[in-house]
């Protein structure tokens, strides 16, 4: 029998050699806890993220746009389910996760506490929010927990359509009337900074980064990922003539990176601690729909039990 210390040493070495941790493998409690926290937070974000976009399904400007938006939202539901399943392999039940979401013990990405006010917001969400998520998720394909890594590979395959459909909306509007251009710019102005906050606090203030990097749960730091997103997105913005709402932003020739103004982390803290524009709405909607679905789950289970009983009597007779 190995001591706890020896097990931990083996575990660290295993991670160091880029092997993946699988559900039944021994792992330190702290690794399991961190993984459950990150997975459930990621899953909740996918599911809550369906709400701002769902708001526009019935008002989409064309049947084509409506079908695309529906498909995108359905994907996000799927992403949530892959991630819940991955979290469940660590011994937490889906009930518990939903309970933690409802009691505000578990968080979801602060970005979904902003409203989608116009059709241009659907463009901005796809382009910026999914764009930021993609940068993060590509990096997470190499995370050390096997089920999480596999879910990320699957999700990344589906995400690039999300970003493209958003950018297409923005491009169309930027080629449209003066009002449409203004709408696109307005959406950009409101979503730019919150998108940058999606990567989390700066590295020197991030509580979880160091251990998460050591265990290869996170592969790259918040600031590195954020910068990658900025560099990609600023060029895309310029390409369609949209302005990045940051007057002091400049290109650093020697580093070849765009340098932005300081991020307003006070806003981030406010939104994440429940004071964003839509926190209450998002959560109460989820709670309501979850309660409404209770009888369906009960009925389905009762039906399946009945069927099994009928089958049993069939065989004994």
């Amino acid at each position: 029998m190995k001591t706890a210390e020896e097990k931990l040493k083996d575990f660290d070495a295993y991670i160091e050699s880029e092997e993946k941790i699988e559900p039944k493998d021994w792992m330190p409690d702290e690794y399991r806890k961190t993984m459950i926290r990150q997975l459930s937070q990621h899953a909740h974000s996918e599911v809550i993220g369906m709400q701002p976009e769902g708001n526009w399904v019935l008002r989409a400007p064309s049947l084509r746009a409506k079908k695309i938006l529906l498909a995108k939202i359905q994907d996000e539901g799927g992403h949530g389910l892959y991630l819940y399943s991955a979290a469940e392999t660590l011994g937490i039940s889906r009930d518990e996760m939903i309970e933690q979401l409802h009691s505000v013990k578990a968080k979801y990405s602060s970005i979904f506490n902003y409203p989608a006010l116009t059709w241009a917001d659907i463009g901005a969400i796809g382009w910026l929010v999914d764009g930021a998520a993609i940068v993060n998720q590509i990096s997470l394909q190499r995370t050390s927990y096997g089920p999480y890594s596999r879910a990320m590979v699957r999700i990344c395959k589906e995400e690039s359509f999300h970003q493209r459909q958003g950018y297409e909306i923005m491009t169309t509007m930027m080629n449209g009337t003066a009002e449409q251009k203004e709408m696109a710019q307005d959406a950009m102005n409101r979503w730019w900074w919150p998108s940058l906050m999606m990567f989390g606090p700066p590295d020197n203030e991030s509580a979880h980064t160091k251990q998460s990097m050591q265990w290869k749960i996170k592969r790259e730091s918040n600031d590195v990922l954020r910068q990658r997103f900025i560099d990609k997105t600023v060029d895309q913005a310029h390409f369609i003539g949209i302005t990045v709402p940051d007057k002091n932003m400049k290109f650093n020739e020697s580093t070849q990176h765009w340098e932005i103004s300081p991020i307003d982390w006070e806003e981030f803290k406010q939104v994440i601690s429940g004071n964003g524009p839509c926190n209450h709405k998002r959560l109460s909607h989820h709670i309501k729909v979850h309660k409404q679905g209770k009888w369906v789950r009960e009925a389905a289970l009762a039906f399946s039990k009945n069927q099994q009983k009928n089958k049993a009597t069939l065989f004994t007779n």
């Binding site: 039940s93 889906r94 009930d95 939903i98 209770k294 789950r297």
Partner: peptide, 11 residues
């Protein structure tokens, strides 16, 4: 699984 609600069996 909690007693108040269920998420149906896992497959």
């Amino acid at each position: 699984m909690s007693t108040t609600d269920n998420q149906l069996p896992l497959w």
